[in-house]
Simulated assay, not measured.
Amino acid sequence: MTAEVIDKQAVAASFSRAAATYDQVAELQRSVGSNLLARLPESLEVERLADLGCGTGYFTRALNARFGQPVLGLDIAEGMLRYARAQGPVSSSWIAADAEALPLRADSRQLLFSSLALQWCPDLSQALKEALRVLEPGGLIAFNTLVEGTLQELRDAWQAVDGYVHVNRFMPLAQLQQILADAGFARWRCEVETHVLHYPQLSGLTHELKALGAHNLNAGRPGGLTGRARLRALTAAYETFRQPAGLPATYQVAQIILHKGQQA
Results as ranks from 00 to 15, higher is better:
Leu258Val: 08
Gln152Met: 09
Val5Ile: 15
Met171Gln: 11
Gln152Asn: 06
Ala18Thr: 01
Arg232Pro: 03
Leu205Ile: 04
Gln152Ala: 10
Ala3Asn: 07
Ser91Cys: 09
Val46Ser: 04
Tyr58Lys: 01
Ser93Ala: 13
Glu100Ser: 11
Leu234Gly: 05
Ser108Trp: 13
Phe67Pro: 07
Gly213Ala: 11
Asp23His: 02
Leu124Gln: 07
Gly33Ser: 12
Gly73Leu: 13
Ser203Phe: 10
Trp94Ala: 03
Arg232Lys: 15
Ser108Ala: 14
Val11Gln: 06
Gln175Ser: 12
Gln175Tyr: 03
Ile6Val: 15
Ala211Gln: 09
Arg155Pro: 03
Ile257Ala: 09
Ala18Gln: 03
Leu231Ser: 02
Leu49Ile: 13
Leu231Val: 14
Gln110Asn: 04
Ala233Val: 01
Ala77Val: 08
Asn168Glu: 13
Leu37Pro: 03
Ala99Arg: 02
Pro122Cys: 09
Leu176Met: 09
Val32Trp: 03
Ile257Trp: 01
Ala38Leu: 05
Leu180Ile: 00
Gly213Asn: 07
Arg242Gly: 11
Val25Ile: 10
Gln119Lys: 09
Ile256Lys: 11
Val32His: 01
Ala19Val: 13
Ala142Val: 08
Thr194Glu: 15
Gln152Leu: 08
Ala157Gln: 07
His215Pro: 02
Asp123Pro: 05
Pro172Val: 15
Val32Phe: 05
Phe241Tyr: 15
Gly79Met: 09
Gln177His: 05
Arg187Leu: 10
Thr21Arg: 14
Glu78Asp: 15
Ala181Trp: 04
Glu130Thr: 00
Gly139Cys: 10
Asn144Ser: 12
Asp7Lys: 04
Gly224His: 01
Gln24Ala: 15
Gly227Leu: 06
Ala96Tyr: 01
Gly227Met: 05
Ala142Phe: 04
Gln159Phe: 02
Gly55Ser: 07
Cys190Lys: 06
Arg169Pro: 01
Ile257Met: 08
Ala10Ser: 12
Ser115Arg: 03
Gly68Ile: 14
Val196Cys: 09
Gly204Asn: 06
Val71Ser: 07
Ile6Trp: 02
Thr60Met: 05
Arg169Trp: 12
Glu130Val: 00
Glu191Tyr: 01
Asp107Cys: 14
Gln87Asp: 04
Leu118His: 04
Tyr199Ile: 12
Leu217Pro: 04
Glu191Cys: 04
Leu234Ser: 04
Asp7Arg: 10
Met1Ala: 12
Ala99Tyr: 01
Ala142Met: 08
Gly227Asp: 13
Ala38Glu: 13
Gly220Ile: 00
Glu42Phe: 09
Asn168Ala: 10
Leu205Tyr: 11
Tyr251His: 15
Leu247Gln: 02
Glu47Leu: 12
Leu132Glu: 14
Gln9Ile: 00
Ile6Gly: 03
Arg82Leu: 14
Arg230Gly: 04
Ala96Cys: 15
Met1Asp: 07
Lys8Trp: 03
Ser114Thr: 03
Gln9Met: 08
Lys8Met: 09
Ala12Thr: 01
Asp75Leu: 06
Ala97Asp: 09
Thr235Gly: 13
Thr21Trp: 05
Glu136Cys: 12
Ala26Ile: 12
Ala77Pro: 08
Pro70Thr: 01
Leu118Ser: 08
Ala10Trp: 11
Ala264Val: 00
Leu154Val: 05
Arg61Pro: 00
